[in-house]
């Protein structure tokens, strides 16, 4: 086994363990935003698609590269935007409380 592969496998295994540790304590209230946030993170695949796009030199490879970049871009932009929208709602109740207090003052 090459040193490179060994390093990659070690990184993979340790990252999985870190993932288990970080995720296991998330309350079920936040399951959807967390899943959506994880969804955005696998949008990192866009990095890989950019790297292959610059190696394309024929029609077939242009097509594959385009599909890859297009799909990955949807993933990364949509993932982060929608997660932010959801989490914005979770922080909203504070504002309504403020509004209520404002109303009371009047």
């Amino acid at each position: 086994m090459s040193q490179e592969l060994y390093t990659n496998i070690a990184i993979f295994v340790l990252s999985i363990l870190v993932g288990f540790e970080v995720i296991s304590k998330i309350p079920s209230t936040l399951h959807t935003p967390m899943m959506s946030g994880a969804n955005a993170i696998h949008g990192v695949v866009v990095v890989g698609t950019i790297l292959i796009a610059l190696e394309a030199h024929s029609v077939l490879f242009y097509v594959i590269a385009f599909i890859a970049v297009f799909l990955a871009s949807i993933n990364v932009s949509g993932g982060y935007v929608v997660t932010d929208r959801m989490l914005q709602m979770f922080s909203k109740p504070k504002k309504t409380d403020d509004q209520k207090q404002d109303g009371g003052d009047k």
Binding site: I16, G19, A38, I41, H42
Partner: peptide, 8 residues
């Protein structure tokens, strides 16, 4: 990133 999401 992939491993993190896989674990999650």
């Amino acid at each position: 990133a992939g491993a993190l999401v896989g674990a999650a």
